[in-house]
């Protein structure tokens, strides 16, 4: 591995290695732009995952809504948010999950000026 991708703690620096790992998941999420596809997904999540060729790890992460695992496996936040929208989850809900906070606490921190990491 000769990747020069910067390593920044607490941060996904999305690169082509990640992108390749998460291709089937991101393709699935992109398809959810269309409402007919959203209906099919909701109807049979398992079959929908198979249709997009998700391997067992990716499928498990989707079915269990393990958002951290999805990112670890190469999901892009801009794609995954389209899956979250089906569950009526907002970016703040996900922010809470990523940081181990309640949504309310996460929003409160943002309103207080955001989270600082000096």
């Amino acid at each position: 591995m000769t990747s020069t991708t910067p390593i920044v703690e607490g941060t996904y620096v999305y690169d082509i290695v990640q992108s390749k790992r998460g291709r089937p998941l991101n393709r699935l999420c992109l398809s959810l732009k269309e409402s007919a596809n959203r209906d099919q997904f909701v109807d049979d999540e398992n079959a929908y995952c198979d249709r997009f060729g998700l391997d067992d790890d990716l499928k498990k992460a989707v079915l269990e809504r393990d958002w951290v695992q999805m990112l670890d496996l190469g999901g892009s936040i801009f794609y995954i948010i389209k899956l979250a929208a089906i569950d009526k989850k907002s970016m703040q809900d996900l922010g809470g999950i990523f940081t181990g906070m309640t949504t309310e606490d996460f929003i409160a921190e943002l309103r207080a000026g955001g989270r600082s990491f000096d």
Binding site: M1, T2, S3, T4, I16, V17, K20, R23
Partner: peptide, 23 residues
Amino acid sequence: AEMSEHILVQLVNDGFDMTVCQE
């Protein structure tokens, strides 16, 4: 994959505005 990623990063750093085709 490793060498193509290396070439991509070096070319972009050198000011070549490459498009990445993953498929």
